[in-house]
């Protein structure tokens, strides 16, 4: 658990970051909170001759709330938990963040690192898909936008180019009920299964619904068909069952120490039905 040697860079503006990335290509990587990257370096599963620290780049910080929400990439999970205006405009972020890792890690782990990492275990990518968030990336040609739902190709393979930096995530304030339900083995563990659900109501029928699942495939899974099973219904036990069945078709969990595939599917079904019930209650 001793990393290989690396050079440490700490630029103060985004352009310098991008030129360093261009200069060193594959040999360079940005580091945000380091709580995904440093373990990989210590295990020598990632060798990073040039480490570019993003801590001193002001352009990557800040939380803007309102009907449209913008969270800078360097915002930590702890910042999210403690931001009261975010807690009222998008409370699901706080609910999910409180289930990520432990308090010490949440002081370090950032939104940008969490969504850019591409690890299927990270909670925020699924959450961002549920929110239909947009990622703002900045590269040599300037900024571009990518939908969270289009961002993830496979484990650690994303739409982001090597010389691009994640600047911020944006999404609309939540209307209706929400729930983030996660099953894990202990504090500090990645999900055995997790479900993010947002639902809104028109009278007693479901007007909108959005469902995304975490750590049940090699990418987060946005479950459009499962969401459709709820829209226009009264969200009866039967409707929830249909949504769950549709979600099960969409995921593809792998066996690991958390359990065999059959158990993961069962856990996915349980967390999703509980999340739907809770979101609907809150809608």
């Amino acid at each position: 658990m001793i990393p290989a040697a690396f050079d440490y860079h700490r630029p103060t503006d985004l352009n310098s970051v991008i030129s360093l990335l261009q200069e060193h290509g594959d040999d360079a990587r940005v580091i945000a909170g380091g709580h995904s990257l440093i373990p990989l370096m210590k295990l020598r599963m990632a060798e990073v001759p040039h480490l570019i620290d993003l801590q001193s780049i002001d352009a990557l910080t800040g939380i803007e709330t309102g009907s449209k929400i913008r969270i800078g990439a360097m915002t930590t999970q702890s910042d999210i938990i403690n931001n009261t205006s975010l807690a009222s405009s998008a409370p699901i972020l706080k609910e999910a963040s409180l289930q990520i890792a432990d308090p010490q890690i949440r002081y370090m782990g950032t939104v940008g690192g969490n969504v850019a990492n591409g690890d299927p275990g990270n909670d925020m990518p699924g959450l961002m898909q549920c929110l239909d968030a947009t990622y703002i990336l900045c590269g040599p040609e300037g900024e571009r936008e990518v939908k969270a739902r289009d961002f993830y190709h496979a484990a650690y393979m994303t739409e982001r180019e090597d010389d691009e930096v994640m600047v911020a995530v944006t999404f609309d304030a939540i209307k209706g009920g929400y729930a983030y339900v996660k099953q894990k083995r202990k504090i500090g563990d990645y999900a055995t299964a997790a479900a993010a659900v947002i639902m809104s109501k028109d009278g007693s029928t479901c007007k909108e619904a959005s469902i995304a699942m975490t750590n049940l495939s090699d990418t987060p899974i946005f479950c459009g068909a499962a969401s459709d099973c709820l829209i226009g219904t009264s969200v009866s036990a039967e409707d929830i069952k249909n949504a769950v069945a549709s979600m099960i078709d969409a995921i593809d969990p792998a066996e690991d120490n958390r359990g065999p595939v059959e158990f993961k599917k069962h856990a996915a079904a349980v967390v999703l039905s509980r999340a739907i019930e809770r979101a609907w209650q809150r809608a």
């Binding site: 432990d102 083995r185 202990k186 504090i187 500090g188 563990d189 990645y190 120490n257």
Partner: peptide, 28 residues
């Protein structure tokens, strides 16, 4: 309730870090 040193058929240790080797926190 969770702690084990598990091996696969090839004799690889499956629980070589504290992510998989269960050590409870105050929470558990």
């Amino acid at each position: 309730m969770g702690q084990e040193i598990a091996y696969d058929n090839m004799g690889n240790v499956k629980t070589g870090t504290l992510m998989d080797f269960f050590l409870p926190t105050a929470w558990e």
